[in-house]
């Protein structure tokens, strides 16, 4: 076994362990941390395949941004894990059967001999990193979908603001200039009231 194969099996073992822990951990924070480990290991396997751009992207985007957000949500919300797990064993046989059937059906239809994308196309000449070639493609051939994606993000931002912004908060600050000009009769009103008897 040469060194890359050893690294692959080593990383795969960690990945499988981490993925299993994601769904078996009782503590949601532990589950989220294991998911981070899974993403990180996945990035390692991708860089083994010389897809270093994807490897960096998954670590920056998923580990750096998405999972941190996830952790915040998990820590903020008080999730009752036992309620979620109620009836797990009851539904397991049916769920497992349906899942297995779907995997089997798709596997039968999508047997790999049907697909015609040649694997060799993915090999780049030496000296050109795939980050650079993805960048070049993105800003030349794929510039139109790239810009469209940016417009979609802009719409997402507009939508989020429209749906949540309710006008500026009324902060309780004092305005010295208005305080100076206040007259006593603006603030104090003297009322004539008869004495109440009980």
């Amino acid at each position: 076994m040469d060194f890359p194969t050893f690294v692959f099996f080593f990383l795969s073992a960690i990945l499988i362990f981490a993925s299993l822990r994601v769904i078996t951990a009782r503590n949601p924070v532990h589950a989220a941390l294991h998911l981070i480990l899974a993403f990180f290991t996945c990035g390692g396997i991708w860089s083994l395949l010389q897809a270093e751009f994807l490897a960096i992207a998954i670590i920056l985007v998923y580990v750096g941004a998405v999972m941190v957000l996830f952790l915040f949500v998990v820590m903020m919300l008080d999730i009752n894990i036992d309620r979620i797990r109620q009836g797990f064993w009851q539904y397991l046989p049916l769920g497992a059967l349906l899942g297995f059937l779907m995997v089997a059906e798709m596997g039968l239809v999508l047997g790999s001999k049907y697909f015609q994308v040649p694997a060799a196309d993915a090999v780049l000449p030496a000296g050109i990193s795939n980050t650079k070639s993805i960048g070049a493609l993105m800003f030349s051939d794929y510039v139109y979908p790239f810009e469209l994606a940016s417009i979609i993000l802009l719409v997402g931002m507009i939508a989020a603001i429209v749906l949540t912004y309710r006008g500026a908060k009324q902060s309780k600050y004092t305005s010295p200039s208005r305080q100076v000009f206040v007259k006593a009769k603006d603030r104090v009103r003297v009322l004539q009231m008869p004495v109440e008897k009980d």
């Binding site: 979908p145 469209l148 994606a149 979609i152 749906l163």
Partner: peptide, 15 residues
């Protein structure tokens, strides 16, 4: 581009 156009339309409509 079919997909991106569709998402742009749908996202605006959801909002």
């Amino acid at each position: 581009t079919v997909y991106l156009g569709l998402e742009l339309l749908s996202l605006s409509l959801y909002a």
